[in-house]
Amino acid sequence: MQAMEISRTGLDVEWRRLEVIAQNLANANSTQGVDGKPYQAMRLVSGPKADFGNYLSASSGPLGVAVYGVEPEGLPARSIYEPGNPNADAKGFVSYPGIDHAAEMTMMVKTERVYEANIVAMNAARQMYLKALELGKRS
């Protein structure tokens, strides 16, 4: 059942990536968070899952993918002149979070594709397991 377990880790990671993208898009106009600063666009960092216990022996097979963290993207905030806004500074400028909409949408489509691919791979593995159960069956 290892192949299905691996596809499951893929589904988990892509789902969480999608959550981060949704969070970025939802906060595109969040000029002030709890810390008083504009929202920071985040990026999910993922990579091959490593079993550190068996890392040196290299005896373990592939383990799938894992989330290694959610890091701020570090895009500069956009300053927009809005003197009427309660979050405006002394000169009347409001800091909007720097969010690259095109990049977010591209990442979203890519995430969806990888998610779908994991489901297809999982189905292929499932078919194989089901077929193996037919061994020895009387027809």
């Binding site: 299905m4 993922s46 799938g64």
Partner: peptide, 8 residues
């Protein structure tokens, strides 16, 4: 399956 899970 591992290749697909690590596509990104």
């Amino acid at each position: 399956a591992n290749n697909i899970a690590n596509a990104a």
